[in-house]
């Protein structure tokens, strides 16, 4: 088949851009499994650096996972009922409240962290505990949960569903548990994956809040870039990728599903 010149040009531009994005990633991944980066691939491939990352930073990995789970639990407990309350009482006040919850999206993480430090920095027990970082993560991720659930609730006629459950004898809590939550599930799932992904990857807020004993995965990454061999830092990136990419894919899938249902 004969291709036009335009087709070849488009193809070339696409390949150049793809290379521009992919080459550094490939190089970084290769650096993480190369025995000696400065001598290049000829020095041989090794898993030594990944082992070293595990030795040095496994605590960061577990702290990040733990924080992400805790953050998810808190945003579920606060966010789902909050979204439901906002959907139930549409009005100027609800809009303002929704905007207010969403503020952390617009404010730089550093500013948010500074505010937290000013307010709670002197409570040394709290300041040095992992829950301090958790508060920051919850502030940052809560709007994603609320908006995701709210979008699904607004798309379905939840009021009629709830009213029909009420005429059938269901109390307010039973209605929430058996009708609202199951039907909002696509939004809850999409929100949950977003919250976990964001919590694991969050850097600038966490960097301000962390203590030397509480380094999360991205904070550890910065640390390794600053103070370790390039191979260790690259191996760390590889570990980070391995954790975050499946989450990212699951998130894409879940939000596509939520959007399909919302239509």
């Amino acid at each position: 088949m004969k291709r036009s010149l335009a087709w070849w040009l488009q193809c070339a531009v696409t390949l150049v851009i793809a290379a521009f994005l992919l080459v550094p990633a490939i190089q970084s991944i290769l650096a993480g499994v190369t025995a000696n980066y400065f001598r290049g691939l000829s020095s041989g491939l090794t898993l030594k650096w990944i082992g070293r990352v595990w030795e040095l930073y496994s605590a960061s990995i577990f702290l990040s996972l733990w924080l992400a789970i805790a953050c998810l639990v808190v945003t579920l407990v606060i966010g789902v009922p909050a979204a439901y309350a906002l959907a139930r009482n549409p009005g100027r006040l609800s809009r303002m409240l929704e905007e207010f919850i969403s503020l952390p999206l617009a404010i730089p993480g550093l500013a948010l962290a500074l505010a937290l430090l000013q307010l709670y920095g002197t409570l040394s027990g709290f300041r040095t505990s992992w829950t301090f970082i958790l508060v920051g993560h919850v502030l940052y991720t809560l709007p994603f949960m609320v908006r995701s659930v709210l979008a699904v609730l607004m798309a379905m006629d939840f009021r009629s569903l709830e009213e029909s459950a009420a005429t059938l004898g269901a109390s307010a809590f039973t209605r929430f548990r058996t009708v609202i939550v199951p039907n909002a599930m696509p939004g809850i799932l999409a929100g949950a994956l977003t919250v976990v992904t964001l919590s694991i990857g969050e850097f600038n807020l966490t960097w301000m809040l962390h203590t030397p004993y509480l380094k999360t995965l991205p904070v550890g990454l910065a640390d390794s870039y600053a103070s370790m061999r390039l191979e260790v830092a690259s191996a760390y990136t590889l570990v980070f990728f391995a954790m975050i990419v499946p989450l990212l894919m699951a998130m894409q899938w879940a939000s596509a599903r939520a959007q399909r249902i919302a239509q």
């Binding site: 006629d157 009629s160 029909s164 005429t167 059938l168």
Partner: peptide
Amino acid sequence: EHRNVGMVFQSYALF
């Protein structure tokens, strides 16, 4: 929820 009425909604509102 305590009145014991049965209601058919315009949109049916099936779960």
